[in-house]
């Protein structure tokens, strides 16, 4: 036996964050597997975490019924916007390469518990789910196609608000989406808005709050202005549950808080009540 035995290779220990998940609401630690196996829901506090857009579609649409639409509609850097951290174009192109999506919402036709629907799911991992021209266009087209095909509209919202890199035209998407939804309702079709964590700013102040019913998952953040902006304006501390699903339900702006596992049957049930 050699005195200088080659040192056994150290087993590679994955970094802590590869193994552990931390609930963003109650900060409790758990093995990543636990978080994943629980459908991204905290087993301690029941916070419903963010779901990847394709996983959400898989959980809501009946099997192999989802047909994606308007994927060709994507962003344009019409302002040539750049800020301290770089230019808008490279940021979105990097996001597109990373996520495989081409805008912050995926829309398409499907059946939900056998009911004909137009489904849209926002993708928070795509530029914070921000509302760009492409996002607004996909929603408006979805409304128009839903009218033509007599489908119910179901939108899952997840967004920080308007996409400021697109300037005023981003703001105008609030009007565009709201007007298109108004037409859908006038055509006698129902619209269910599901405000998931987070639904804020210009998205909350347009299509997210216009549902014939607005529903949400437990403990989502839903609101117009940011907590810090409000605290700095009114010079007061806000309650811990301010702008949560539970707070909004209490104040009358959410019809029902629905657990993730119950969302699909709930939506199907409502569409059934309304004869769709």
């Amino acid at each position: 036996m050699s005195w200088f035995e080659p040192k056994a290779e150290k087993p590679k220990i994955p970094p802590a964050k590869a193994l552990w998940a931390i609930c963003p609401k109650c900060k409790s630690h758990m093995a990543k597997e636990v978080w994943k196996n629980n459908n991204s829901i905290c087993p301690k506090c029941n916070y419903h975490g963010r779901l990847p857009v394709r996983e959400r579609i898989r959980q809501i649409a009946d099997e192999s019924t989802f047909v994606e639409l308007f994927r060709e509609v994507s962003y344009s850097d019409h302002l040539g916007f750049h800020d301290a951290t770089g230019d808008y174009k490279s940021k979105v192109d990097a996001t597109i390469a990373k996520t495989g999506e081409t805008e912050s919402i995926v829309v398409g036709t499907c059946e939900i518990g056998g009911h004909r629907a137009m489904l849209g799911v926002m993708d928070f991992s795509f530029m914070g789910g921000s509302l760009g021209s492409g996002t607004g266009e996909r929603i408006a087209r979805a409304c128009e196609q839903a009218i033509a095909e007599r489908r119910a509209l179901v939108l899952f919202c997840a967004s920080g608000g308007a996409r400021m890199h697109e300037g005023i035209l981003s703001l105008m998407q609030m009007t565009k989406t709201s007007a298109a939804i108004g037409r859908l309702k006038a055509a006698g079709l129902p619209y269910i808005s599901v405000c998931t964590d987070p639904t804020t700013g210009g998205v909350s102040a347009s299509f997210a709050m216009l549902g014939d019913i607005n529903i949400t998952e437990p403990k989502a953040l839903i609101g117009f202005a940011g907590r810090r902006v409000i605290e700095n304006t009114i010079h007061q501390k806000l309650p811990a549950d301010f702008q949560t699903s539970e707070y909004l339900e209490k104040h009358g702006f959410i019809d029902k808080i629905v657990e993730r596992k119950d969302l699909k049957p709930f939506i199907a049930k409502m569409l059934n009540y309304w004869g769709f």
Partner: peptide, 25 residues
């Protein structure tokens, strides 16, 4: 729009959203 506690509690987002839908038609 005013960023205040009561503004949020009385539905600032909903009021703006409704206005957009309302005046569009």
């Amino acid at each position: 729009a005013y960023p205040g506690r009561e503004a949020e509690e009385r539905g600032q987002a909903e009021a703006i959203a409704k206005s957009l839908e309302f005046f569009s038609a």
